[in-house]
């Protein structure tokens, strides 16, 4: 049965798009049929992060308004045939998204895919509420930093009140994805620890993505980090998170970069 998953955070720049692309690719790599939808109307970026920016012809708004068919707007990934992207419009504004229109697109996608990943825009306005509205599962992306934790708390409140599930009296499944985590700084007392964030937000943890240069390298290349360098620390962390999303129990670890002998000798500098 298809699952609609929203990747959200409130705060911008914490890694929603990176995580949407990486989790989407990891799930697709495991054989599931996955579509990732960009809900950031006016400021689309998922196409760029996934390396499909030159293949965009139609977008979500065109489909919602009936100007294009879903099959015309979906872009199939060149690396994984069971991974698709539905881009946002770059020229229209977010008011063009209607609740009924989005619901119709999602129900059509539910027929074709196992996972429908909605990459939410930052903020708590229309684009963000539209992205979470019909979700079955939410991944709340949080950095171990005060403003991000505060905004995540706010978003959790919205997930519990403004989603279709919540309004029907059901509970929406919520997971915390802690990104840009630096275990060394946390150990030195310079960064909130995993336990601190978990205690404050009190939702279950789906993964810890360590701070890594690999994330920028992957977006430079237009490739999800799970495809660009699956063996890297963030790559492995996202693969683990994807398996947990599928219900597998995977021990919670914070992957670190595998270093060669030289890397170990000059560990501090290489880190």
């Amino acid at each position: 049965m298809a699952k609609v998953l929203v990747v959200t955070s409130g705060k911008g720049g914490v890694g929603k798009t990176t995580s949407s692309a990486a989790l989407g690719a990891a799930l697709a790599h495991g054989g599931d049929k996955v579509v990732v939808i960009d809900f950031d109307v006016g400021l689309r970026n998922l196409d760029l992060v996934m390396g499909a920016e030159r293949r965009v012809v139609f977008d979500l708004i065109n489909v919602v308004q009936g100007d294009a068919k879903l099959s015309q707007a979906l872009i199939r990934d060149k690396r994984l045939e069971n991974l698709s992207l539905l881009p946002a419009s770059q020229t229209r504004d977010k008011d063009a998204l209607t609740e009924e229109g989005v619901a119709k697109v999602l129900s059509e996608l539910r027929e074709k895919f196992d996972w429908i990943i909605c990459d939410s825009p930052a903020g708590i306005e229309r684009g963000a509420t539209m992205a979470m509205r019909h979700a079955d599962v939410a991944v709340v992306v949080t950095n171990p930093e005060v403003s991000s934790v505060r905004d995540s708390d706010r978003i959790i409140g919205l997930l519990d009140s403004k989603t279709e599930k919540a309004e029907k009296g059901d509970r929406i499944e919520k997971h915390l994805l802690l990104t840009r985590y630096d275990p060394n700084r946390a150990e030195r007392g310079e960064m909130l620890k995993v336990e601190d964030v978990l205690e404050i937000l009190s939702i279950p943890l789906i993964g810890i993505i360590p701070e890594s240069e690999e994330v920028l390298k992957a977006s430079n290349m237009g490739s999800p980090v799970t495809l660009n360098n699956p063996a890297s620390a963030p790559g492995r962390a996202y693969f683990d998170a994807a398996r947990r999303l599928k219900g597998e129990s995977v021990e919670m670890t914070i992957p670190s970069e595998r270093k060669g002998l030289l890397g170990k000798l000059f560990g501090r500098r290489a880190a």
Binding site: V146, V149, R150, R154, G157, G189, D196
Partner: peptide
């Protein structure tokens, strides 16, 4: 003094307040 415990405490106080104001 480590800064992380300060962050943690500030958040706990702030969020206890905001959850009241913004929640039901």
């Amino acid at each position: 003094r480590s800064s992380a415990p300060v962050a943690r405490e500030r958040l706990q106080i702030l969020l206890a307040h905001e959850r009241g104001v913004l929640g039901g």
